[in-house]
């Protein structure tokens, strides 16, 4: 049972966290984006990809909220978000547009300088 659950966690992360650009803030994210995702391939149906989304969430809201938002995104990725979100075409591929701003607009206000 336990190996299956661990495998499930890994599968969930690796299926969603894709490489599109490297981050420079989170070492774990860097490792994933530089070593795992190139082999695993970009299979995230959303834009930005789950790894980019998580990276942005961590940078924008810190570790706790970033972690919560990343988990929420991993669960939602490729499901209802794919049909309910706006579409964006990148390199002739259609992605569901689901940036951090679309998920924190109800409690976070961007500071205008």
């Amino acid at each position: 049972m336990l190996p299956r659950i661990s495998f499930l966690i890994f599968i969930l992360f690796s299926s969603c966290m894709a490489l599109e650009s490297c981050s420079h803030g989170n070492p774990g994210m860097n490792f994933f984006q530089e070593h795992i995702s190139p082999i695993d391939g970009n299979r995230c149906s959303s834009y930005p990809s789950c790894s980019q989304y998580s990276n942005t969430a961590f940078k924008k809201h810190g570790a706790v909220m970033g972690w919560i938002m990343a988990c929420d995104r991993l669960v939602r990725c490729g499901r209802d978000t794919a049909t309910l979100s706006k579409k964006v075409v990148i390199n002739s591929e259609v992605f569901a547009f689901d940036p951090v701003e679309a998920n924190d607009f109800w409690w976070y206000e961007e500071k205008v300088e």
């Binding site: 919560i68 938002m69 990343a70 988990c71 991993l74 669960v75």
Partner: peptide, 11 residues
């Protein structure tokens, strides 16, 4: 994380 993510995601 996933449980709180579920609450956050629902709201």
């Amino acid at each position: 994380g996933f449980y709180t993510g579920n609450i956050y995601g629902s709201i």
